[in-house]
């Protein structure tokens, strides 16, 4: 418990917050990685997932990819990219994107699949074009699940970004590996605590966003069921 106290002191020491290697800068770097990776992964995975969900084509492949990806060891991907692409942002970022794509892809198509097929059929029969069916029916109704997928992906990237310091990336992982190397347990533990806080904060943020994305008409339906 003494160690926890020292770690806390390390976290609160103002001198550890200053400069480009300070906690503030490292946290921003960590969040920046996460944001960039999510944007890139979304640009790739959301259109593909929506296409799979809308047309029902390629579903088998999408299921297999997102399922098999769960078995992919993050550290393996990080070190592999580090070795292949060398120092710089490209290696860790590629690893983050590779690991974030499957959950976003799965959530994008699962969101569409969860929409009642009768509702989609009726919308089409009323004369909505395919684009209107997509944007006015499937996207709003599938959004909460998609945000759930972004949430998993964000947590995945936060965790992987910590590991990526092992291959030379920045972010809060630096403290963990530096502490490990110099036997500075307070720094190692303090850095870990900050990553944990960051992950929980992000998790709660996405949870709130997911709740807010549930359309009102669907929310009242669920309350009705609960009664």
């Amino acid at each position: 418990m003494n160690q926890l106290w020292e770690a806390l002191l390390w976290c609160l020491d103002p001198s550890n917050w200053q400069g480009p290697a300070g906690i503030g800068a490292r946290s921003l770097e960590h969040l920046g990685y996460t944001a960039l990776a999510l944007v890139i992964a979304s640009v790739i995975a959301v259109p593909v997932g929506w296409w799979v969900g809308h047309t029902g084509r390629g579903r088998g492949v999408a299921v297999a990819v997102s399922g098999a990806a769960r078995a992919l060891p993050t550290l393996g991907v990080v070190t592999l990219m580090g070795l292949m692409l060398g120092i710089g942002l490209a290696a860790p970022m590629t690893a983050f994107v590779v690991l974030a794509v499957p959950s976003i892809l799965a959530a994008a198509y699962a969101g569409f699949e969860a929409v009642d097929r009768q509702v989609v059929d009726a919308a089409r029969a009323q004369g909505l074009t395919e684009a209107q069916v997509l944007w006015r029916v499937e996207v709003p109704l599938g959004l909460p699940l998609l945000i759930g997928g972004l949430r998993s992906a964000a947590l995945q990237v936060i965790a992987t970004a910590t590991l990526a310091a092992y291959v030379g990336a920045g972010g809060l992982g630096r403290y963990l590996f530096l502490g490990l190397k110099t036997q500075d347990y307070a720094m190692m533990l303090g850095g870990s605590l900050i990553v944990v806080l960051l992950a929980i904060a992000l998790d709660l943020l996405f949870a709130a966003a997911g709740r807010a994305a549930v359309p009102r008409g669907v929310r009242v339906a669920r309350q009705g069921q609960a009664q």
Binding site: V63, S103, L145, A159, D203, G210, R211, R222, Q225
Partner: peptide
């Protein structure tokens, strides 16, 4: 199929993060 018990499907909503990382 994994993680698609009828209930979680009906609940629709926010599917939880599936794997720790």
């Amino acid at each position: 199929s994994r993680r698609t018990s009828r209930r979680s499907h009906r609940a629709g909503g926010v599917e939880r993060a599936v794997t720790p990382s």
